[in-house]
């Protein structure tokens, strides 16, 4: 089953600025853990962020969970975004809030304004937050402030927050680039295991080709706004990598 299908996606950040994505097509199937690799500036983050319209596409079509993303109004877009968990390179936690409140904030899309104001989340949500905090190994840190945690721990909070949405797709923008190699492997492993457990497909930007090969079943290679490679991980050859990273070698 296709969860996400993108056709002819183009993005410019400003009317006069350069075209960052120059017509991208790809699909994410329900059992995919898909990596996007490519040199810095290729447009990987732009692509991921266009999927849930954190960046507005200038042309093309995005069909996400049977909705045409570009046609939705603000309210419909919020309802669709609830189904898409996002994990960020810089974690994007709320530093001055507790770990628990950070995780609960993943439920905001399902919570009314009054409850949000007084942080009165339903008991099911609190129980679920406790479960996911345990799952990512942070049971001992529930009441700490987010800025008291290490990088790896912060990203685990980010993962738990995304899972709170009961996502039908995970968007990961270099989830491990801010972490050291050992912690990176642990965190990637955790994300992959949870994605399998919950049967959620994932679309994941990765800098590190080695990590991509290790954890992902399919790889998309990007360069300068174009898709240069798309196929199963086993089919990625060194010559493909050379082509994708050609700009950097020069």
């Amino acid at each position: 089953m296709t969860v996400l299908s993108v056709t002819g996606l183009k993005v410019r950040y400003s009317a006069k600025g350069p075209e960052i994505l120059k017509g991208i097509d790809f699909e994410v199937k329900s059992d995919d853990f898909l990596a996007i690799i490519g040199p810095s500036g290729a447009g990987k983050s732009t692509l991921i962020r266009a999927v849930n319209r954190l960046v507005e596409p200038t042309a093309g079509e995005i069909i996400l969970l049977d909705h045409n993303v570009c046609d939705l109004n603000a309210k419909q877009l919020r309802e669709l975004r609830r189904n898409v968990g996002m994990i960020f390179q810089e974690f994007n936690l709320i530093n001055r809030m507790s770990v628990m409140d950070n995780v609960l904030s993943g439920r905001l899309g399902y919570t009314g304004n009054m409850r949000s104001l007084f942080r009165m989340f339903p008991k099911e949500d609190v129980d679920q937050a406790l479960y996911y905090l345990d799952r990512v190994g942070l049971s001992d840190h529930i009441n700490k402030r987010a800025d008291e945690l290490s990088g790896g721990q912060r990203q685990r909070v980010g993962i738990a927050r995304a899972l709170m949405q009961r996502p039908k797709l995970l968007l990961l923008d270099e989830p491990t680039s801010a972490l050291d190699p050992k912690i990176s492997r642990e965190v990637m492993g955790l994300i992959r295991d949870i994605a399998r457990e919950l049967k959620v497909p994932a679309l994941c930007n990765i800098h590190d080709v080695q990590l991509a090969k290790e954890f992902c079943n399919r790889i998309i290679g990007m360069q300068d706004g174009y898709k240069k490679f798309d196929g199963a991980t086993e089919t990625l050859k060194d010559s493909d990598l050379e082509e994708i990273y050609a700009m950097e070698v020069l």
Binding site: L80, V84, F88, N92, L93, G109, R161
Partner: peptide
């Protein structure tokens, strides 16, 4: 960053 995280979770 946190603003984007909340928006991407569907917060109003």
């Amino acid at each position: 960053g946190p603003v984007e995280a909340m928006r991407s979770a569907g917060a109003n």
